[in-house]
Design a protein around this nucleic acid. Sequence first.
DNA 1: TATTATACTACTATTTTACTAGGAATTGCA
DNA 2: TGCAATTCCTAGTAAAATAGTAGTATAATA
Lengths: 144, 144
Amino acid sequence: MKISTKGRYALRLMLDLALHDNDAPVRIKDIAARQDISDKYLEQIISSLNKAGYVKSIRGPQGGYKLAKDPSGYTVGMILRLTEGSLAPVACLDDEVNQCDRQETCATLKLWQQLDDAIKSVVDTVTLADLVEWQEEKIDNYVI
Amino acid sequence: MKISTKGRYALRLMLDLALHDNDAPVRIKDIAARQDISDKYLEQIISSLNKAGYVKSIRGPQGGYKLAKDPSGYTVGMILRLTEGSLAPVACLDDEVNQCDRQETCATLKLWQQLDDAIKSVVDTVTLADLVEWQEEKIDNYVI
DNA sequence: TATTATACTACTATTTTACTAGGAATTGCA
DNA sequence: TGCAATTCCTAGTAAAATAGTAGTATAATA
């Protein structure tokens, strides 16, 4: 029941983009350095975000990436589902293909549905804008 | 972010024990047949439940397993954590060893805490007795 | 046209998952 | 007392997922 590095890195990547959103696009190399993540791995992750239209890419010198829309336009769930796949705790909630034949009389199914709802209530509510806000709060309060 | 078979099977196993809780202990073989799960695999799973004192075992002929206490005494979280390990969505919530050095200024940490709370609010609230109840409701309503 | 950046594809070591296999220990019953 | 039924214990293993690395192609800019 762990979120993988892919999902976690994707969130930090998008947050980094949101925090450095001025005119100039942000290079993978810079995100990788700031977030201390392999740039080659980030490249793969951002590639799927790019294909989904979550970020815009600019190639060549002075190139990089920018968010496609305002941070408030992304929920955490959107980003995680794109990189992690489904966030449902069991496969039978994903799609009909994975439903088992005990469906009708399965008591644990109700449990999984409740758990799924609880997860959704967080990931589909919190947006990238919230993360930006929280980040700024944390930085303000953080004194060495 | 999936619950593994180990955790799912453990829940069904415990539910099966709760549903067949009369004087006679329940054999692994019977649970395996009813739940359509490999009995050798169930054996391993119930072994950890036994070591944790969640079930009592009786060896020899007419042996088997029984719940150690009333179904209301087990939360789903207890059973899942024993078999799955931690249910926290990221390792840095598990223990201090896994905390990263960004902890102080990490905005996603707040997200993971909220997600963790949401998960806990379900798994630490629902008990095996609830599953029994749901099961009975389902069976009552299920007409072929 | 050299340089800087993204884009794409393939490969790989490690870990986790989901079991299977085989035998040892215990106990009830004939 | 011995056999059969059951749990107990340990090891092995195929397949999938995870977390990357590596190399080259493509595009844009100065």
